[in-house]
């Protein structure tokens, strides 16, 4: 019983060892170090972006993408021109047939 109470008081003593603790403070010039870290991380993110842009894979990929886009625009324009040409031929043909039939009708009426 005595030993038990002795243990109990020991534990209570350990548990209360944090009582009256003085708050800790960081080392002096904390703000200067924080500022340096923030600037460093800002610079490193710019550097990372620059490194990415300078990578051969990125340059090659961008080049291929530009070429593909060019090809697509060129192809779609050519297709559009082809459709327009077909449409004008059809219009000419239909105009010719309608004129022809009108001429023939006139010939029948006034020989």
């Amino acid at each position: 019983m005595n030993k038990h109470s002795h243990n109990e008081s020991d534990f209570e003593k350990i548990l209360s060892s944090l009582d009256g603790l003085t708050p800790a403070e960081p080392r002096p010039f904390f703000y200067t170090r924080l500022q340096a870290r923030m600037m460093k991380s800002e610079q490193s993110s710019i550097q990372r972006a620059m490194k990415l842009v300078a990578k051969p894979a990125f340059v090659l990929g961008t080049g291929i993408l530009v070429l593909l886009l060019n090809g697509y625009i060129l192809f779609s324009k050519l297709e559009q021109k082809q459709v327009q040409a077909e449409e004008s031929t059809q219009m000419l043909a239909s105009e010719y047939t309608s004129l022809n039939s009108h001429w023939n009708e006139n010939l029948v009426e006034n020989p």
């Binding site: 708050p23 800790a24 403070e25 960081p26 904390f30 703000y31 170090r33 924080l34």
Partner: peptide, 30 residues
Amino acid sequence: ESRQGMVYNTVLGLVQNAEDAEDVTQEVFI
């Protein structure tokens, strides 16, 4: 400057290492 002590003390109590506490405190303010 007004809150660094408060944050550092909390972080130190949890991470229990002065160097780590400084790093984490900086991260908190970022």
